[in-house]
Design a binder for these strands. Structure first.
Lengths: 217, 217
DNA sequence: AGATACATACCAACGTGCGGTATTAAAAAA
DNA sequence: TTTTTTAATACCGCACGTTGGTATGTATCT
C-alpha cells in the first residue's frame, strides 16, 4: 500500500479501530493482528511506526476519550462569572449533556470485562481531572465562601470519583433503577458536604441517558 | 521431584509465590515462568494441575486476601446484640485492627500498576461485600430505626467502596497527610448520611497503620 | 487398578524489533 | 524557475523471543 500524505488520518484510523475493538472485546483480548485486519491493508509495521507499543495505543485511546470532556472542564474552571459552587453545578450539568458520553454509549462497551481501560480512566480521574479541574474550583469556592471544607484535595477526589466512575452506568452495568438510586445517594452526599448542586432538571436528563444506554445493549 | 503427600501445601505455596509476585511486579508482568522459578523445583505441570489458568490463580489469590476479612464481616453481621448502626461502627473498627491488612502491608504492593488485581478487588467489593454483608446490616438499621435511607443498596455500595478502596492507602499510594484528609472527608460523608460511626479511637489507629505502610516502602 | 501429583516436551499466538522500500517535502544546485 | 539532491517519513513483512496453555508420560499414592 502506498504511503499516505496525511499520516494523522492513519493514526486516527488506528485509534478508531482500536477504540471499537477495545470496547467490544476488551483490551487484553484484542490483538495487534485484530486491529490490522479491521484496518484493511495496513501492516504491523505501520502500527508500530505510529505507536511505540500496544499500551501506547490504549493511552492514546483514553486520551481521546477524555479530551473533549477536559476541554469543557477547563472552560468552566476559567470562567469569571461564577463562584465555586456554581461552577461545580455547571460541570455536572454539562458532563451529562455533552456528547462525549453519547459517543461511548453507541458502542455500549463493557467496562465489566475491561480492567485496563477502567483503570486508565480511574487514573485519569484521580491524577488529572481531580487536581487540575475540580480542585481549583473548590479552592475558589473556599475563597469566595460558597464552599466550606478543610480538605479540598480529598473532597475533589471523592466527588469526581463518585460522579465520574461510580455513577457511570457503564462501569458496573447498572439498571435504570440502580442508576436512579445511585444518583439520589450521590445527591445526598453532596448535600452533606453543603453542596446543593443537583436540581430536578439534571436529574431528568440523567434518567434519559441511562434509558438510552439500556436500550442500546 | 517426588510427589507431595500434602497437595494443599503445594497449592498454598503456589498462591504464596503468586501473591508476592503479583504484588511486586503486577499480574500482567508476572509470567507463569516467573512463578515456577520462585517455586523451586516445581514445574508448569504442577501449576496447571492445581489451577486451570493464570486467571484462576488470580481469583484464588484475591479470594484468600478477602477470606479473612469476609469472615469478620459475617460474624458482625450475624451478631444479635447490636443494632444496625452499631454493627457498621464495629465493622470499621475491626477492619482497621485486623491483621489481613498487616499481611498485605508487609509486601507493600503497588495497586498503582496492577489493574487486574485492583479490578478483582473492586468486583469483590461491589458484588460480594456490599450486597452480602453491608446491605443486610443497613436493612436491619432501617428496621430498628438506627439508620435512615431510601436507597440501602446504593448506600451500602458507596460506603464500602469509599471505605475499602478509596481509603485504602495502597490503592492510590497516598501519603500520611493524604490518608488523614481522606479519612476526615469520609467521616464527614458518613455524618451526612446520619452515620456518626467514626470516633477518635478509630482515627488514631488508622494513623498508626498508614505510618507503618509509609515506612515499609 | 485407578486416581493423584507432578515432569517434560511441545504448540500456536502474541507483542515487538528491524532491515528494507516507496513516497514526500525541503534544501541545494542549475 | 526549474531541476536535482537529500533526508525524513510512512509503511511493509518477516523473524524473534516469550507467553499461556496442552498433551503425554511417569512415579506414587489409595
Amino acid at each position: 500500500m502506498a504511503r499516505n500524505k496525511h499520516p494523522e488520518e492513519t493514526r486516527s484510523l488506528i485509534l478508531d479501530v482500536a477504540f471499537r475493538l477495545f470496547m467490544e472485546k476488551g483490551y487484553e483480548h484484542t490483538s495487534i493482528q485484530d486491529i490490522i485486519q479491521q484496518l484493511g491493508g495496513l501492516s504491523k509495521g505501520a502500527i508500530y511506526h505510529h505507536f511505540k507499543s500496544k499500551e501506547d495505543i490504549l493511552v492514546a485511546v483514553t486520551d481521546r476519550m477524555t479530551a473533549e470532556s477536559n476541554q469543557m472542564l477547563a472552560y468552566i474552571r476559567d470562567r469569571t462569572d461564577l463562584n465555586g459552587l456554581e461552577k461545580l453545578k455547571a460541570i455536572f450539568k454539562e458532563s451529562i449533556n455533552r456528547p462525549v458520553q453519547d459517543d461511548i454509549f453507541t458502542v455500549a462497551p463493557d467496562f465489566h470485562k475491561n480492567p485496563k481501560l477502567l483503570f486508565s480512566l480511574l487514573q485519569d480521574t484521580v491524577e488529572e481531572v481531580a487536581p487540575n479541574y475540580i480542585l481549583p474550583i473548590i479552592k475558589q469556592g473556599i475563597l469566595d465562601g460558597s464552599i466550606q471544607t478543610k480538605y479540598p484535595e480529598e473532597l475533589a477526589e471523592l466527588i469526581i470519583l463518585a460522579g465520574n466512575i461510580w455513577m457511570n452506568p457503564m462501569v458496573f452495568d447498572d439498571t435504570k433503577e440502580r442508576s436512579y438510586g445511585k444518583f439520589m445517594i450521590f445527591r445526598q452526599m453532596l448535600c452533606g458536604f453543603g453542596l446543593d448542586i443537583i436540581d430536578d432538571e439534571i436529574l431528568e436528563r440523567l434518567l434519559e441517558l441511562t434509558s438510552v444506554y439500556q436500550e442500546n445493549k
